[in-house]
């Protein structure tokens, strides 16, 4: 296999999938997907954690047997006491790296145990990156709204600090997190008795404007973009900027095919145009965007290649 320009990371599953779908998904990733790292664990809603706790143990084993580095995800927003306890407990073990998406967890990191910083932590400048690297952060998945100029500057600062920079390269873009659950709200339910209604929408529920234009997507307490971020045509630009790995965020459908398309474009066996065609074939209904990269607006459509 040709040398790839990037490591590939499978981001945490953002959606509420049934336990058997969850297990099948990670089994296929373990056996077939050309990804180097897999970030696994609940990132959005602590109520979901127990739904697949058992499936997670076997998923981690299988991923490790498949040669993937397993990284534990953590909650994007820690508020409840049980969430604090669960977050703290992640640090009881040291064999798996932890990805921090809420600075609450910084209380428990140890400088000798490397950790990574997820895309929901506000790393906008070199000073912040250097501060976190000084505490032991070794990989930064940058906020998806950053333009390429900032990414380049941050990648240089990361290299100096002995850390790597990862970019969110595929999937609906995490845009906001709230204390309130929107799935519960629009179904007339309260958050505490939500009936796990978010399970109905494997990729989030689309939010349209009153003109009928697709706009956003809700996923429990999270709001995502309707469009899928897709940087498969921009890999040369990212390599030049010093990005060392790409994050692919899990969605329904043939996700192994998505990871293969990125792997093949990254190694040069597919052209960006062929890679995009492949992705369009895998999920013809998806709209793509790379707008954030160019500092205009995040929803800007992908230019024709």
């Amino acid at each position: 296999m040709t040398q790839r320009k990037f490591a590939l990371t499978l981001g945490p599953l953002l959606f509420n999938w049934p336990a058997d779908v969850f297990a099948d998904f990670y089994a296929r990733i373990a056996d077939e997907a050309p990804v180097d790292r897999v970030v696994i664990g609940e990132n959005i809603c602590s109520k979901r954690t127990h739904l697949y706790a058992d499936a997670m143990v076997s998923a981690i084993e299988r991923l490790q047997c498949g040669g993937k580095q397993v990284v534990l995800s953590s909650l994007a927003m820690v508020t409840l006491e049980r969430e604090r306890r669960a977050a703290r407990k992640l640090f009881d073990q040291t064999s798996l790296e932890i990805e921090i998406d809420d600075l609450t967890l910084m209380n428990w990191v140890r400088p000798e145990t490397p950790f990574s910083i997820g895309p929901l932590v506000n790393v906008y400048n070199e000073a912040t990156l250097t501060f976190l690297a000084g505490k032991g952060a070794r990989r930064f998945c940058l906020p998806p709204e950053l333009p390429i100029a900032s990414i380049g500057t941050l990648a240089r600062a990361a290299a100096k600090a002995g850390a790597g920079v990862e970019l969110f390269a595929y999937g609906r873009i995490p845009l906001a997190i709230s204390g309130r659950c929107y799935h519960a709200r629009i179904h007339g339910l309260s958050k505490d008795s939500c009936q796990f209604i978010c399970e109905q929408d494997a990729d989030g529920l689309s939010v349209r404007t009153l003109d009928g234009a697709d706009f956003l997507a809700i996923n429990g307490v999270q709001t995502l973009s309707h469009k899928y971020c897709n940087l498969i045509g921009d890999l040369d630009l990212l390599a030049t900027a010093g990005v060392t790995s790409l994050r692919l965020s899990p969605h329904s459908g043939d996700f192994v095919a998505v990871t293969r398309a990125f792997a093949e474009v990254a190694s040069g066996t597919l052209s960006p145009k062929q890679g995009l065609a492949r992705l369009q074939q895998v999920a013809p209904e998806r709209d793509y965007s790379n707008g954030f990269l160019f500092g205009a607006c995040g929803a800007a459509a992908l230019p024709a290649v």
Binding site: A76, M77, I173, L175, F292, G298
Partner: peptide, 16 residues
Amino acid sequence: CVMAEGRCSLSSYATG
């Protein structure tokens, strides 16, 4: 603010 403050990119998604 409806969303957690400082953790929201809705505006830049629509306007940059």
